[in-house]
Design a protein around this nucleic acid. Structure first.
Length: 563
RNA sequence: UGGCCUAUAGUAUAAUGGUAGUACGACAGAUUUUGGUUCUGUUUGUCUUGGUUCGAAUCCAGGUAGGCCAACCA
């Protein structure tokens, strides 16, 4: 039975796996080579992780390899800062590339390709301005018109192109264009630009070049030079594919092939570098790694794990249909992993003081499991004393029917400790509750002979004299609407003003003092938390990675529907 | 008003001419020293109209809807 299910799963391939299997079966390739080709002009985000898992995953599954290639053909937007962050993010996600290449490695070769096309009469130098070229391009329903420079002879074109390279012209004075078809229904065939002049410093080639190839004249050729078998990109490049093939055919070079999939869209966030850059530059977030950002670095700082992001990338699948994935799936994936690995700790956010009136000892140390999901779990020591904090939320003076926690005369268990009963509610002059007087049941001690006594609920707590404090940052979705990018007006109007809530001092059990960056925590009943880089010797700071599922909160919402 | 891509539960994704399945979500219940976890159950779907066929989510044609394409960006 299990085998049958497994077989079914194996049979169910996504369309890219089908293509690869067919190519391999037909003997078109001995092994496959994919590439992940970011432009180093921004940080990687969760959308890129789909592409990364796809490219590296496909190669891994079919015994092939994956290159990392930086598509650095536009010197004015690119920077080594981005190169470094991109490499760090890919490694953190758990992937290693076969080769690290740069489109700029191929500038000389690409230049020679261009001369070859000129010699074949398939490219020409155009002196027209950008505006003139745009005008002559026509529209999707009207054909374009030929540039007056379209008929220049080969020798002239060759000389002019060499002069372009030599720096004889200023930015914008000339471009190199492919000579294809000004009437094509595919706008990319109306003599697309191959090279433009940019007297700009390149992060790798410095000032060696003043002409730079356009995307269409760099990407396919770079794939071909590396002998990439399957060049996988997003759907907006579909109209480029005929041009991708045209250059390869005219140059008669290794025939890489392009395949397109639908990019990831996630609700309640934005996933475009331009928009993310705006959020950073205009101070709506603290940086690319702000824990509310959908960047890999933001998710990492927030406490997401590589495993959870890979799981997400696998669960969303891949197809050619536009999609908007529900963040609840991402949250499910991170809880799924963190539940297995997170160390449990008790932390009170909003304290209510409890005095255990019949507790006479100064203190006692109890044992509690670090992770009940782990059969071989370790245990930590937990101090108990006469004065404790519990959560305000865990006490109600006049509880509704389904409230299981503490209320006057009622009992609850303190996790890993004793059952207590609320005997008295102490209030100040204004009627505000200042503390609770409770009595404990010594025989109910956790782990003891009679510890199986039943009460309705178990709550977390902290011993006041032993408590340490930490700052806690609680995050909510960055936007108030599902699809801010497609809403009327500026997407920034839809930013959620309450996406960050800071608790200056939460009270934690002392074991949290040793918190480390390689450990994830579950604050019992509160959520998953991860140490933030803003922590110092004096003050620990924790980010809430995710809440726990909360069916009680749902129950409450039902009782008090939105006005 | 041209060309191209796409259309399966609320959201994704599978079924490759032969019983429409899976995950997340939602809802209900069991278990639980986390109102967590785990387990069980329920709910909801082939854009539309024709055609081919014994049989269509699948193939064909028309329609409809959404997306992409006219940057010296990638």
């Amino acid at each position: 039975m299990a085998d049958e299910i497994k077989k079914e799963e194996e049979k169910s391939l996504n369309f890219l796996e089908e293509i690869v299997e067919e190519d391999l079966a037909a003997g078109r390739y001995k092994s496959i080579l994919t590439r992940f080709p970011p432009e180093p002009n921004g940080y990687l985000h969760i959308g890129h992780s789909k592409s990364i898992v796809l490219n590296f995953g496909l190669a891994r599954k079919y015994g092939g390899k994956t290159n990392l290639r930086f598509d650095d053909t536009n010197p004015v937007t690119e920077d080594t800062e981005y190169v470094e962050s991109i490499k760090a993010d890919i490694r953190w996600l758990g992937f290693e590339w076969a080769n690290e290449f740069y489109a700029s490695d191929y500038f000389e070769q690409l230049y020679l390709f261009a001369e070859e096309l000129i010699r074949k009469g398939l490219a020409y130098v155009d002196d027209s301005s950008a505006e003139a070229i745009a005008r002559m391009k026509g529209t999707p329903t009207e054909p374009g018109t030929a540039s007056p420079f379209r008929t220049r002879d080969v020798e002239t074109n060759l000389q002019l192109f060499r002069d372009m390279r030599a720096g004889k012209y200023k930015d914008g004075e000339k471009v190199l264009r492919a000579k294809i078809d000004m009437a094509s229904s595919n706008m990319h065939f109306r003599d697309p630009l191959m090279y433009r002049i940019k007297h700009a410093h390149h992060h790798r080639t410095g000032d060696a070049w003043c002409i730079y190839p356009m995307y269409d004249f760099a990407h396919g050729q770079s794939d071909s030079i590396e002998k990439i078998t399957h060049s996988i990109c997003t759907l907006e490049f579909v109209p480029h594919r005929p041009l991708y093939d045209w250059f390869i055919e005219k140059l008669d070079i290794f025939p890489s092939h392009q395949y397109e999939f639908a990019r990831l869209n996630l609700n309640y966030t934005v996933l475009s570098k331009r928009k993310l850059l705006q959020l950073v530059n205009e101070g709506h977030v603290s940086g690319w790694d702000d824990p509310r950002m959908p960047t890999i670095s933001g998710l990492r700082r927030r406490g997401y794990t590589p495993e959870s992001i890979r799981l997400f990338a696998e669960k969303i699948g891949v197809a050619k249909r536009e999609n908007l994935i529900d963040v609840s799936l991402l949250e499910f994936c991170v809880r799924e992993h963190l539940n297995k690995i997170a160390s449990r700790r008790m932390v009170v956010f909003d304290p209510l003081k409890i005095v255990v009136s019949n507790y006479e000892q100064p203190e006692e140390w109890l044992s509690s499991e670090d992770n009940p999901e782990d059969p071989g779990t370790t245990h930590r020591q937990l101090p108990f004393s006469r004065e404790l904090y519990i959560e305000q939320d865990d006490f109600m003076e006049n509880p509704p029917k389904k409230f299981f926690r503490l209320s006057p005369g009622q009992k609850v268990r303190l996790k890993s400790a004793y059952i207590i009963q609320c005997d008295e509610v102490v209030k100040d002059a204004s009627g505000k509750i200042t503390e609770l007087r409770c009595s404990y049941l010594p025989e109910s001690k956790s782990g003891g002979a009679q510890s199986n006594m039943k009460v309705q609920a178990t709550i977390h707590w902290v011993s006041i004299p032993h408590a340490i404090t930490a700052e806690v940052r609680l995050y909510d979705r960055l936007f108030r609407v599902e699809d801010p990018a497609n809403e009327a007006g500026d997407f920034k109007e839809y930013i959620n003003p309450d996406s960050l809530q800071v608790l200056q001092a939460a009270y934690a059990e002392p074991a949290l003092r040793n918190a480390k960056f390689d450990e994830h925590y579950q604050f019992l009943r509160k959520g998953y938390f991860y140490l933030d880089k803003d922590s110092s010797e004096e003050k620990m700071v924790f980010n809430r990675t995710s809440t726990l599922r909360d069916t009680w909160a749902k129950e409450q919402r039902k009782d008090r529907p939105n006005p």
